[in-house]
């Protein structure tokens, strides 16, 4: 009886309790979704829907004016056959290798520099100066640089000729002058972010480790190799991944400075996407190039993370 008497009571109690729990959890869940909703709706409408649309568009020929025509894989086949697309991807890979190397190298050297003994005011000025180009618009910087590097009236050539040196067609001479100019402008503007990451990374290295290392008799280079680099390696990984992703999408500098020329020597993959879509109205082709570039970015990032297992030291 007891058993019979208690069981329903317990069951009722359990039901009431779980109902209370459900009732109690519903409001926070609703609130959570309520707060998330604007972001999710925004992401859905302006990110996921365009991504899916772009994926579909890659299999169509569409010029905005006439109805889209299904062409299967023709846009992708066309990319392989198009010499300009091949060159633009090769240029992009070249840009990535050079800019990422320079960006990481310069940023690391300068970050080590500002960490060394110097007055605080000087450190503040240097940090700001190195970071400053990054906050400027890439298009504006490129326009100013186009004036500086102008072959006929630019300041740089005027200085060179005043010194008795020959003028250089910075933006109009074939490889490598124009490509080097674009690279210089890009690296100058972008190394500040990597620099900032390295400054943060270096500040996180415990001083005790250096002190212990000094007591053991290690000198500057050995300290850098055995302490700084390993402890900075997670930051280097993050900086390199971000630099590679950013460099694979290089557009503003070559577009404003050279429009991809001379010939195709500074044309990049994103430039071809822009030209295909918004100048030549080949939205299917542009989407196909975009998909290929996205896959490349994903693959390169995956490779970076895979390789990081060998050299990144997480302490």
């Amino acid at each position: 009886m007891t058993a019979t008497g208690t069981t329903p009571t317990r069951a009722r109690g359990a039901t009431a309790s779980s109902a209370a729990t459900r009732g109690g959890s519903r409001a926070p869940a609703l609130m959570t979704w309520g707060f998330l909703a604007p972001t999710l709706i925004g992401l859905g409408l302006f990110t996921f829907v365009p991504i899916v649309g772009s994926l579909l568009l890659a299999f169509f020929r569409w010029d905005i004016i006439t109805a889209p025509e299904f062409v299967g894989l023709a846009n992708f086949v066309d990319l392989v056959a198009d010499p300009m697309v091949r060159v633009s991807f090769l240029n992009t890979f070249g840009f990535v290798i050079v800019t990422v190397t320079l960006q990481l190298g310069i940023a690391l050297v300068l970050a080590l520099g500002v960490q060394s003994a110097m007055p605080t005011w000087l450190r503040t000025i240097l940090r700001s100066a190195y970071f400053f180009p990054l906050i400027l618009s890439a298009a504006s910087v490129s326009l100013v640089m186009a004036y500086l590097f102008n072959g006929d009236f630019g300041l740089i050539n005027q200085v060179l000729t005043t010194l008795g040196l020959p003028a250089v067609g910075w933006l109009t001479s074939g490889f490598p002058a124009a490509a080097v100019t674009v690279l210089v402008v890009y690296v100058w503007q972008n190394f500040g972010f990597t620099f900032l990451l390295f400054v943060g990374g270096l500040a996180a290295v415990p001083k005790e480790v250096y002190e212990a290392c000094s007591i053991d008799g290690a000198t500057g280079w050995r300290k850098f190799r055995m302490i700084t680099l390993p402890l900075l390696s997670p930051t280097i990984l993050v900086a390199s991944v971000m630099a590679v992703i950013s460099a694979l999408q290089i557009f503003d500098q070559p577009y404003v400075l050279t429009r991809g020329g001379p010939g195709d020597s500074t044309r990049t993959a994103v430039m071809v996407i822009f030209e295909s879509a918004f100048q030549q109205l080949q939205f299917g082709r542009a989407s196909a190039i975009g998909i290929v570039l996205t896959l490349i970015i994903v693959a390169v990032t995956a490779v970076q993370f895979r390789l990081s297992r060998r050299f990144v030291f997480y302490g």
Binding site: T172, G261, P262, G263, D264, R267
Partner: peptide, 8 residues
């Protein structure tokens, strides 16, 4: 894109 290459 081909003009500059040809004349320089």
């Amino acid at each position: 894109k081909n003009v500059v290459g040809a004349v320089t």
